[in-house]
């Protein structure tokens, strides 16, 4: 029993992580305090990172934790801490589109899930990924050979973001001064 469990540990863990990610994501909708929502999001991201790791794409898992949790969410948490906790938006959680929004979201999920069930019923699983195809080396080589233009464009995008952020800050300074 235990041995069988161990043999299928990968799969079990995968399902476990998936369930946890889903629950955390659902909590994001429900929780009132932004800080808690942020923590729920972080937990979702961490579980997703686990899933990536189980799928064998370790560097994506690493990036998930580094960039999302390490950079994006830290930024977000700071923003939350900067802002006033007594804001009315903190008490009244939901907008007036609560019911239609949830209905539409569920319909969205149902539509896609139905399509998924229909389309993927006859598709055999791709089998375990060839570890080589997802190594960091192949990835880096692909980026610098095949996708170098995209890679460069991301740097342009980042520069643009930095400039934009600076511009926004300037606007705020001017307003104050």
């Amino acid at each position: 029993m235990i041995e069988r469990l161990l043999a299928n540990l990968d799969t079990l863990l995968l399902y476990l992580f998936a369930a946890c990610a889903f629950v955390s994501a659902a909590l994001m909708i429900v929780l009132a305090q932004p800080m808690r929502v942020a923590l729920a999001l972080i937990s979702t991201m961490v579980f997703l990172g686990g899933i990536y790791g189980l799928l064998g794409v370790h560097f994506i898992a690493a990036f998930q934790v580094l960039i999302y949790v390490g950079a994006v969410m830290v930024f977000m948490v700071y923003a939350i801490m900067l802002l006033d906790v007594r804001d009315p938006a903190y008490q009244r959680r939901y907008s007036r589109y609560l019911v239609p929004g949830i209905l539409a979201g569920v319909a969205f999920f149902a539509a896609l899930a139905w399509g998924l069930a229909r389309e993927f019923a006859d598709v055999a699983e791709g089998g375990p990924a060839a570890g080589g195809a997802f190594g960091i080396q192949q990835f880096a080589a692909a980026f610098l050979n095949e996708y170098w233009l995209h890679f460069e464009l991301t740097s342009v995008l980042l520069v643009a973001a930095v400039v934009a952020a600076l511009a926004v800050i300037n606007v705020s300074r001017r307003d104050r001064g």
Partner: peptide, 22 residues
């Protein structure tokens, strides 16, 4: 003028498109 209403419209329309495409 409500961003959320627009987002809702986008969502509803996306659902409609998906259903139509199925």
């Amino acid at each position: 003028g409500s961003l959320q209403f627009y987002a809702f419209l986008v969502l509803a329309a996306t659902v409609a498109v998906i259903l139509w495409s199925w």
